[in-house]
């Protein structure tokens, strides 16, 4: 299959195309995961919110009217579920506990394994420094940058939906937070 746009993938999935759905999951999971991580839930809650978000999309496949905005729909759904989980239990990860610097070897994607293999030790050390500096940023900066880190890069509309922020404030906040990060790395 060679469908470029997320909207086209969504429409194909809505008509029953399982491979289009799988491609959609591959493309938008990093966005959903980033929104969930930005809210710093404990792992069990993060996993549950991620699943709920995709289950909702599956049940709403034939009901969603704007296929091109599906990324924003997912981001917004994930955000609202995160907020409810936080209100329900207040189980939120303290900064130091989110030390996911060594993901389980058996839970890596093929891409991840390739990435690992390709990373030279020096390059990985550099990225680790970047990641550790990121963890020292203010809460607001960590939230925004965690969503911007999704791959492929999310649109500002998707970021806004995932964080409940005005689109206009994303650019300036991003510049300020990346500046802080650069100073931490200097």
């Amino acid at each position: 299959m060679d469908i470029d746009s997320t909207g086209a993938l969504f429409q194909a999935a809505a008509k029953g195309d399982a491979s289009a759905w799988e491609a959609l999951v591959g493309r938008l999971s990093p966005l959903v995961w980033s929104v969930v991580r930005a809210h710093r839930l404990i792992d069990a809650d993060a996993h549950e919110v991620f699943q709920t978000t995709w289950f909702r999309l599956a049940d709403n496949l034939t009901r969603i009217k704007e296929p091109d905005k599906i990324g924003a729909w997912l981001a917004s759904t994930a955000r609202h579920e995160c907020l409810k989980v936080i209100r329900g239990s207040r189980r939120v990860v303290p900064t130091s506990d989110i030390d996911v610097l060594s993901p389980e070897a058996d839970d890596r994607s093929p891409e991840q394994a390739v990435l690992d293999a390709e990373e030279s030790a020096g390059r990985e050390a550099t990225l680790r420094k970047v990641w550790q500096a990121y963890e020292q940023l203010s809460e607001n900066c960590r939230r925004l940058l965690r969503v911007l880190m999704a791959s492929p890069p999310p649109s500002y509309a998707e970021v806004a939906a995932g964080l409940g922020m005005a689109i206009g404030s994303i650019g300036p906040t991003r510049g300020r937070c990346l500046g802080q990060l650069r100073r931490l790395l200097a």
Binding site: S29, P30, V32, W33, S34, R37, H47, F50, Q51, V100, L101, P103, D107, R108, S109, E111, Q112, L115, D116, E119, E124, T126, L127, R128, V130, W131, Y134, L145, R146, L148, M149, A150, S151, P153, R174, L178, L181
Partner: peptide, 18 residues
């Protein structure tokens, strides 16, 4: 930002099971 994206893929990827 691209370095952060690579770092996230390395240190906090979407769990495959999910």
């Amino acid at each position: 930002e691209e370095s952060l994206r690579r770092a996230a893929q390395l240190f906090d990827p979407v769990p495959v099971s999910l």
